[in-house]
Computed example of a mutant assay.
Amino acid sequence: MSRVTARRPTVRITQAGEIRRPDTLAVEEPLEIRLDGQSLTVTMRTPGSDIDLVHGFLLSENIIATAEDIVSARYCAGTDENGQNTYNVLDVQLRTAAPVRPRAFLTTGACGLCGKTALDEVRARTRYPIPAAGLTVEAAALAAMPGTLRAEQAVFDATGGLHAAGLFTADGAVLAVREDIGRHNAVDKVLGWALRENRVPAHDLVLIVSGRASFELAQKAVQAGIPLLGAVSAPSSLAVDLAADSNLSLVGFLRGETMNIYTGAHRITR
């Protein structure tokens, strides 16, 4: 098995009786991110595209603006009980020291921030404001994007346990898809790809996510200058507020030929 999936024994109950067999699961492991040797945060993620994840995370947290802000990103030494490198610690050397430490990283619905405080914080930190004009997407092209994203989810096919995020052009061409146990990590991975490909600010791209659109995912889209975020499931109220405040088009329940446009309907043409 790869580091992305693992096998575990299961007992499956069916009408025909019990079936004992191994099941394929998505791997979840910690990744410690260090800046210039100092621990910054630990995120639980599915191994793979870690360099993209770190670039996207640091972009989302306003620590870097371009890929050139990072001199190097290297795995630190660390072994498991079998003496194998865990590849679970990445040390990032910045070209210049981060001027301030970013906000607390363990953010939950009980973090104590009110909606206005959260919106003001994102507004103050955004390097790439989303232009009012520019990108437009035909509704039919937008409706087809989740199906394209789903077709690229190879690990989900094997495990049923991963989120996905994808970056698309306005005409529906897929540029990058990443999977992860955490939806925020999947988004960071595609944003990291875009940063390393010099596609940030991503004013001409569409971000599609396989689940719901939380405030955190909307915030990441805004930080990268992405003008349209589409989600297969529902957005949160604060995600809609942030989208309206930041000129982000937010589309939810993007399934088949139907969708709910919560903000920025002028970008979706029929």
Rank of each mutant, 00 (worst) to 15 (best):
K189Q: 14
A173R: 13
A67S: 13
A154V: 12
F156W: 14
Q84H: 14
S233C: 10
L113F: 09
R150K: 10
G147K: 07
V122P: 01
A77T: 15
G134A: 07
M44F: 10
T258D: 11
A221K: 01
V137S: 07
T108D: 04
V206T: 04
V11W: 00
V27Q: 14
A118C: 10
G112F: 11
S72C: 08
L113V: 10
A158C: 02
A231W: 02
L250A: 05
H55S: 09
I70G: 01
R196D: 03
T10G: 12
A26M: 05
R255S: 12
I181T: 15
T10I: 12
L31T: 04
S214Q: 03
R255G: 06
T79W: 06
G225E: 09
K189P: 07
A143S: 13
A141Y: 02
L90P: 04
V232I: 10
A173K: 08
G109I: 12
K189Y: 03
S246L: 10
C114T: 14
L142W: 02
A231N: 08
L250Q: 05
D52F: 13
E28V: 11
R127Q: 13
I64L: 09
L207C: 04
A151Q: 13
I63P: 02
G211D: 15
A132E: 12
V206R: 00
V27L: 02
A239Q: 05
P30A: 06
P9D: 13
A151Y: 05
D204F: 04
R270Y: 06
A132L: 11
G147A: 14
G225M: 06
L135P: 08
A16Q: 13
E29W: 05
A186T: 08
V222P: 03
R125V: 00
I268V: 15
A154L: 14
M145K: 00
K220P: 00
P227T: 12
N185Y: 00
L90F: 05
L94M: 04
L142D: 01
R199D: 02
P235H: 06
L250C: 10
N198Y: 09
P47N: 06
I51F: 07
E18Q: 11
D36H: 09
T269L: 09
A158I: 02
P227H: 07
D69C: 10
A141I: 04
I130G: 06
I19G: 00
N185A: 15
L238E: 01
V232H: 11
T269I: 13
L106I: 14
E152D: 10
S237W: 01
Y75V: 07
V100P: 00
L175F: 07
D91P: 06
I33S: 00
R212V: 10
Q219E: 15
V187K: 00
R95Y: 07
S39H: 12
P102K: 09
L254Q: 06
S49W: 09
E216I: 15
A118F: 12
S39I: 05
N82Q: 12
R20K: 10
A231S: 14
F168S: 02
E28L: 10
Q84D: 14
Q153R: 15
N62K: 11
L135S: 07
T169S: 08
A202L: 08
T108I: 10
Q93S: 15
L250D: 03
T148F: 03
L90V: 13
R103M: 05
L119C: 07
G172W: 11
V190R: 01
T258R: 11
L106H: 08
